[in-house]
Amino acid sequence: MAQFAGAGPSKAEREHRFFLAMAATILTLTVIGFAPSYYLRAFIAPPHPMEPLNPLVHLHGLVFSAWVILFMVQAGLISAGKRHIHRQLGILGMLLVAIMIPLAIAVGIAGIDRPLTAPPGIDTLSWAALPLLDVPVFGGLIIAALAMRHRSDVHKRLMLVAMIDMVQPSAGRLIGMSGVPGEAVGPLSGLVVVLLLIVLIVRDWLVTRRFHPAAIIGSAIVVARIVLTPVIWSTPAWMDFARWLSGAG
């Protein structure tokens, strides 16, 4: 009895705690990053002039906030051993994803005609590439994670990689608060995403002495999107496409 009483957490329990800690980190970054521009906008002055919050933006904020909270709850349920509730809430997750993807596209397109949506010094036609090129990345990763829910090791890693990818907007707002020039916000926020992905990959290596394919492939897709976005967004083809989307082309 004394031997069992003194035993530490199992390997599975430590992994659950890691994913719970990552979910808490993502939730914290989301709340702090969007506090001045959304959650506490009535009480905290934003770092620079911003567009008014219209119904579409409010709906976007509500749905994506619900998704981040659900991710935190789901990680907590697994950590607490409540798998049956986790599976039941997964149905809600599927419904949210079905709303999130078209909503993100709609907000990205609408932002083209809202000059203050982009950081100072960045053309909104270019900045629209950030959400619009990211939708198939985080959307695809989430859909793949849901499709692989029978493989918990793959499911949880693909879902975490998708959530880390979605941190870039909140990280960008945090970086923007420090007075960093607008053109540096994208690369620096992308770096935050890369660092979080490295935490996942290194943790897998330290614990299992191998790199998990789901973490590596998912991270490679996200990093490719981060690297290619600023390359694409200044090209004539993208600018013409963005003008066409906004109805100005």
Rank of each mutant, 00 (worst) to 15 (best):
M1Q: 07
F4C: 13
A5H: 04
S10Q: 11
E13P: 00
E15M: 09
F18Q: 06
F19T: 08
L20V: 09
A21L: 13
A21E: 06
M22D: 02
A23S: 10
A24C: 13
L27C: 05
T30R: 08
F34L: 15
S37E: 07
L40Y: 01
R41E: 00
I44W: 03
A45P: 04
P46D: 01
P49W: 14
P49F: 10
P52E: 01
P52F: 09
L53Q: 12
L53C: 12
N54K: 07
L56Y: 01
L56M: 11
H60V: 12
W67C: 05
V73S: 08
L77N: 10
I78M: 15
S79Y: 13
A80W: 09
A80V: 12
G81C: 08
H84E: 13
H84M: 14
I85V: 11
G90S: 04
G93L: 06
L96N: 07
L96A: 03
A98D: 02
A98L: 07
I99P: 12
I101P: 08
P102H: 03
I109W: 05
A110I: 02
R114S: 08
P115N: 14
L116S: 11
L116A: 09
T117L: 11
D123K: 00
L125D: 15
A128W: 15
L130P: 12
P131R: 00
L133E: 03
D134L: 09
D134M: 06
V135L: 02
P136L: 14
G139D: 06
G140W: 01
L141K: 05
L141V: 13
I142Y: 09
I143Q: 01
I143C: 06
I143V: 11
A147E: 02
H150K: 10
H150R: 14
S152T: 07
L158K: 05
L160T: 14
L160W: 04
A162N: 00
I164S: 01
I164V: 06
D165Y: 07
M166H: 07
M166N: 08
V167F: 10
Q168S: 08
Q168L: 13
S170G: 07
A171F: 02
L174I: 01
M177P: 13
G182T: 05
V192Q: 06
V192K: 03
V194W: 00
V194D: 00
L195D: 02
L196D: 03
I198W: 08
V199R: 04
I201K: 04
I201N: 03
R203P: 00
W205N: 14
L206I: 08
R210W: 10
P213G: 14
A215I: 14
S219E: 04
V222S: 02
V223G: 12
A224S: 14
I226M: 04
W233N: 02
S234A: 15
P236D: 01
P236N: 06
P236S: 07
M239Q: 14
M239L: 15
D240G: 10
F241R: 09
A242K: 07
R243D: 06
L245T: 11
S246G: 11
G247K: 10
G249A: 10
